[in-house]
């Protein structure tokens, strides 16, 4: 009796697993690291540009959804970056770091048009960033904090093709913040007033492309090596703001390299044939 019950339980689990394996939507996860250059300006700290190397880590997750008959995919990007930059005379350093998260819902347009494997994706993206820029020799204005949330328009063009029995994917994505809010001290406001005395003065401001014109471009190329998929790419990011009479910009670009994993219970090739977004 016990043996029969155990067999039944195992059979049910296997059946459930099989159903899950057959119906589970394939998900894509990519881990990417990058190195490049950064150009920072923050007139709260200095009128000089600071340039130097910047390091990046990106995690991207992508999965189909059931929205609009499955024509919408969900993408999340977590981006960590750190930089050590110097002013032009190389007499002072800025240490910078930020963590940003973006979630986008892309509607798939022009699937397999104008050529097979091409796909245009368009949709809203919401996200936010927390970060800092620390000047190593300033006194009462040693650092600038970054805290912002935004609603962006996200456009991506994908081209997937097969060569030598393997699938390759080329993707370019543009994220353009349209509306948001960000923290900024007032023009000459000290952090002593803000955090020790608790005095606020228009420290959360609305952002638009007119006072904070920003853009992120992500170009990636996914290619297989045996049963693994690797990714190389190029990240270019423009973050700017001119708020409370404080000018800030962060221009970054980086070469990326990483690996892509397709999380599914199906074998890799089968998952690819079932229509992974990448």
């Amino acid at each position: 009796m016990k043996y029969a019950a155990r067999c039944t339980l195992i059979a049910l689990c296997c059946a459930a697993g099989n159903i899950a394996a057959q119906e589970a939507p394939p998900r894509t996860s990519a881990h990417v690291i990058g190195i490049g250059g950064a150009n920072h300006l923050d007139t709260y700290l200095s009128p000089l540009n600071y340039t130097g190397p910047q390091f990046h880590y990106l995690h991207e997750s992508l999965r189909p959804t059931s929205l609009f008959d499955g024509k919408v995919s969900f993408q999340s990007i977590t981006h960590v970056e750190g930089s050590v930059t110097k002013n032009r005379p190389e007499k002072a350093d800025d240490l910078g770091g930020s963590l940003s998260f973006d979630a986008a819902w892309h509607y798939h347009l022009l699937t397999d048009r104008p050529l097979e494997g091409f796909r245009l994706m368009l949709g809203p993206q919401i996200g936010g960033t927390l970060g800092f820029l620390y000047n190593t020799r300033n006194g009462n204005n040693p650092a600038q904090a970054t805290a912002e949330v935004h609603l962006s328009a996200s456009v991506a063009a994908l081209y997937g093709f097969h060569r030598w029995g393997h699938r390759f994917t080329l993707r370019e994505q543009l994220d353009l913040p349209l509306l948001g809010a960000m923290f900024s001290p007032a023009y000459g406001q000290s952090y002593y007033e803000l955090f020790s005395l608790g005095h606020t003065d228009h420290n959360v401001r609305l952002t638009t492309p007119f006072n904070a014109p920003s853009l992120r471009s992500l170009l990636t190329f996914d290619f297989p090596v045996r049963n693994n998929t690797f990714r190389i790419g190029y990240l270019a990011e423009i973050r700017q703001s001119h708020i409370n009479h404080i000018k800030r910009h962060s221009y970054t670009h980086a070469v990326l390299i990483g690996w892509v994993r397709h999380f599914t219970l199906l074998p890799h090739r089968q998952a690819m044939s079932r229509g992974c977004v990448f």
Partner: peptide, 19 residues
């Protein structure tokens, strides 16, 4: 005046009363 810092094109640092 609570002092802030800034800098010149040649890299010299300047401190001044801000608040």
């Amino acid at each position: 005046g609570l002092p802030f810092s800034s800098e010149l094109p040649n890299g010299w640092s300047v401190r001044f009363s801000a608040c």
